[in-house]
Each structure stands twice: as structure tokens, then as C-alpha cells.
């Protein structure tokens, strides 16, 4: 590579644009200019992507998005402007058909508690414990409006994703919390528990949990992880 290049060789450079004859120098110069423009443009786009909404992004937001998405998407508002101040738990209850044919509804099962148990004492928590359910419920919230209606096809994708995360955890012998039977319907609820104010502060913070209950969903084969229909 460039290991053989002698830094002191100023008079007759062995490398670089000064080592080239005229036509080659033109190619090199054009490349230099093109790459400089490309790099500057890319940085400008990334800057506009991470910057707050502003005059330029209001007028040319589409151009920025076209450049950035999907491969250069980024979000560095880690714990900003404020860190998350509540623990969000996903709980599920299921309507189960027993082999005998009777139907029953289970109590609420805390799925997030399963994750938390796995994260405890782990030097390298898996994304399946730390991110999957946490980010799924987050996305679900973003993909639904205040009345809980899905926003477009992403909203429906997020519902299907939730069902496929939940089901293997509660159905079948391998499930963490096997409900013992075939799940016919499930209902989720999202419980947000505010972190209490620090004991060394005199701040008053309500610690009352707020609960959002989602509608009952019918379970079909498409929601089952090890689906036989696709084989």
C-alpha cells in the first residue's frame, strides 16, 4: 500500500498527485473535487437529519429523508432531552381453550418481569431480553394514535409483531409462563410506573401507575412462531 512512500521525497514524489503527469492529474483533481463535494453533502444531510426541525428541513425535509433513509438513519437523543422516568411493563392475559374443551381466562402475566429477571446479573444482556419487548411496545405506541387505532400498515405490523413476541412466551411446553392449553385470544396492557423521586430531593412525584389496556386480539396460525403453515 502506501508503506513504501517516502515522506521526505518532496522533489520527486513517488506518490500523490504531484507524481502524476498532466492527464492523470486531471483525473485525480476531478476525483478530489467530486469526493469533497460528496463528503460535504453527506455530512450536511446527516447534520440536518439529527438537527431539530428548522427552516431548511421544513423546506427540503424530503430530500434529507431520501438521502438518509434507510441506511444512514440515526438517533442520538440518548436519554435526551430528558431520560425516561418510568418503568414500562407489558402484561398479557389470555383466553385459553383446554383440551377438555372448556374455556378460561388467565390472570395478568407480567412479561417485562421475565426480561428484567434475565437482565439481572448479566454482564452482556441479550437483545432478546433487553430490547425486543421494550422496543416493540415503544414502536406499538408510536404506530397507534391516542385512541389506540393503528396508523397505517406499520400500525398493523406492530400488532402482529406484538402477538408473535407474546405467544411463544405463554403457549406451549417451552414457554416461560405456559398457560396450559391453546391460546385463542389475548389482551395486552401497558403499565407505566413512574420512578419515585430521589430520597435526597424534596420533589413530590406521583408514583401512581398508569395503565393502557389494548383490545382483545384473536390468535391465528400467522401469530404462532413455529408456524407449520409456512413449511
Amino acid at each position: 500500500m502506501s508503506a513504501h512512500i517516502d515522506d521526505g521525497g518532496e522533489r520527486r514524489p513517488a506518490a500523490g498527485i504531484l507524481a502524476l503527469s498532466m492527464p492523470y492529474q486531471v483525473v485525480a483533481a476531478v476525483t478530489l473535487a467530486a469526493l469533497a463535494v460528496l463528503a460535504a453533502l453527506h455530512l450536511a444531510m446527516v447534520f440536518l437529519h439529527v438537527a431539530p426541525s428548522n427552516t431548511i428541513t421544513k423546506q427540503h425535509g424530503q430530500a434529507v429523508d431520501d438521502w438518509i433513509y434507510p441506511e444512514f438513519e440515526q438517533n442520538w437523543k440518548l436519554f435526551a432531552p430528558n431520560p425516561l422516568q418510568q418503568n414500562v411493563a407489558v402484561e398479557v392475559r389470555a383466553e385459553v381453550a383446554d383440551p377438555s374443551g372448556t374455556r378460561r381466562t388467565t390472570g395478568w402475566i407480567d412479561l417485562t418481569a421475565q426480561d428484567v429477571e434475565d437482565v439481572r446479573g448479566s454482564v452482556f444482556p441479550s437483545h432478546t431480553e433487553q430490547n425486543m419487548l421494550r422496543r416493540a411496545i415503544d414502536w406499538y405506541g408510536n404506530a397507534h394514535d391516542d385512541e389506540g387505532r393503528p396508523k397505517g400498515f406499520r400500525g398493523r405490523l406492530s400488532e402482529e409483531y406484538m402477538r408473535r413476541i407474546v405467544l411463544p412466551r405463554i403457549e406451549g411446553p417451552g414457554a416461560r409462563a405456559d398457560v396450559g392449553g391453546t391460546v385463542e385470544r389475548i389482551q395486552l396492557r401497558r403499565v407505566a410506573r413512574p420512578v419515585p423521586a430521589p430520597h435526597w430531593s424534596d420533589e413530590k412525584r406521583s408514583t401512581t401507575p398508569s395503565t393502557t389496556v389494548m383490545p382483545w386480539w384473536d390468535i391465528t396460525d400467522a401469530d404462532r412462531s413455529r408456524t407449520e403453515t409456512s413449511r
Binding site: N82, P83, L84, N87, D115, V119, P125, R134
Partner: peptide
Amino acid sequence: RWQDGTALFFPLHLDYFTP
């Protein structure tokens, strides 16, 4: 929270980030 200097307290009490 970053202004009043309590910000770091909260991540330290999030279940997902307290191994």
C-alpha cells in the same frame, strides 16, 4: 432533568438497564 442535576438518577432505576 439534566438542568436540575437529577438526570442520571432515572436510568439507574430503569429495570431494563439495571443488571
